[in-house]
Design a protein around this nucleic acid. Structure first.
Lengths: 229, 229
DNA sequence: ACCTGAACACCGTTCAAGT
DNA sequence: ACCTGAACACCGTTCAAGT
């Protein structure tokens, strides 16, 4: 004979399921900061392919539908994560170092943060800054640095956007497989490219992606630097 | 009383459903080129959010499962589309014009093609060239042009990758909303950035994205050009 | 080999019901 | 206001059955 239906489950049952009775809890269980932190943790553990609303809810020990009391969509969660990650980008050098060194350290930091989060790039690239306050704060720090360095005001935004576009594209490049340029059986019909790949100079960098990033970034720093008053 | 079950439907029925009897057809209905063409047409009509395997199958008048006789996955279809689009990128200037003009026309063409297909960038950026023969052909044309222009062989691949990273990032930028940099209610706390946005010089270009692309591209062309022998 | 048709294991999201 | 739990309308993909 089974136990009474109202008998509580033993405290150390192996299912760690979201146990909470229906109805509004006394204190709210969720908030946007908690959702962001859990999302970041889940992405770190399971990657973006394992990042589902159901999995996120499980991490937070709530039903998936509970999330929708705090965010309007999964994209909303990605926006929260993106904004948080942007706050990790190092802009401190704009206060302490010359313009070219500041741009360099900011750009490498920015690329490094998002190379582990490339699925967010689609989100950032088209997201109004008004929806991402920490991202806006980064732009303020960077444009203030450009301004102080004597950059002509009319070109500050364009220069930042150009750098950012390069940074986003380069973040993808970090994730490319090592053999991406192996032409395989078609090597004979592509002699120039095959030779160029074979003789690529790594210039002491650990990864090809770093060589390319350095090359493009230094090109931009040199050309943009010349625009200053 | 209903008609006999075997009675054929009237030829001008309003449902244009995939009507074909079960079993292998006398001649194959599908092939990769046809799938690619239909995918391109569907994307043009419905965008990437409307691009599903079911919708693609409907365009081709087959059952969704029929597609899997010719491609292994939806990603496979995207690879086919990507490779076809890359063949539309204009590399002709590398045969006819000086290096800097050739790079310029190639880069603008490349950006323009993929700015309408940004969801493919995730695919291209990490796709081994051996899986995309037309993409490989583009690299051959470009690296041959760099080689003829006296570019040091050890830096050809890095230079192309840097340009490509910038092109991909810039393709996203084309799709950004016009008010992306509107700081809204936070304008007061971001005075430098807000002023820079207000005073952005469009330099005669139609879109801000074009100004930034020009700025970054010319920076790279200038710096990379100086590397030539 | 190459279709159809039914099924599977998800997915994000909605909404009534409950406190 | 903010949970649960059931449901919905998809989604990509698999696979047996058929020719």
């Amino acid at each position: 004979m089974p136990a009474l239906p109202s008998a509580p489950a033993e405290p150390h049952r192996q299912d760690a399921k979201p146990r909470r009775r229906v109805g509004r809890p006394a204190a709210a269980v969720l908030d946007q900061d908690g959702i962001t932190a859990a999302a970041l943790q889940l992405i770190g553990k399971s990657g973006y392919e394992g990042f589902t609303m159901a999995a996120l809810a499980r991490t937070l020990n709530v039903a998936p539908s509970a999330l929708y009391n705090h965010v309007a969509s999964k994209r909303d969660v990605l926006v929260l994560v993106q904004d948080h990650l942007t706050s990790l980008v190092d802009v401190s050098a704009f206060d302490a170092e010359p313009w070219d060194r500041a741009v360099r350290s900011w750009a490498w930091s920015y690329r490094d943060v998002f190379s582990k989060h490339t699925p967010l790039i689609t989100v950032i690239a088209v997201l109004p800054v008004a929806d991402a306050p920490k991202t806006l704060a980064m732009y303020e720090a960077v444009s203030a640095g450009f301004s102080r360095a004597g950059f002509p005001q009319g070109r500050i935004v364009s220069a930042i956007v150009a750098l950012e576009s390069f940074i986003f594209g380069s973040a993808y490049d970090v994730t490319a497989p090592a053999d991406i340029f192996d032409s395989g059986s078609m090597a004979e019909s592509t002699p120039n490219f095959t030779a160029a790949v074979a003789h690529q100079d790594l210039e002491g960098y650990a990864q090809p992606a770093d060589v390319a990033f350095n090359l493009g970034l230094e090109a931009m720093i040199a050309a943009f630097g010349a625009l200053r008053a």
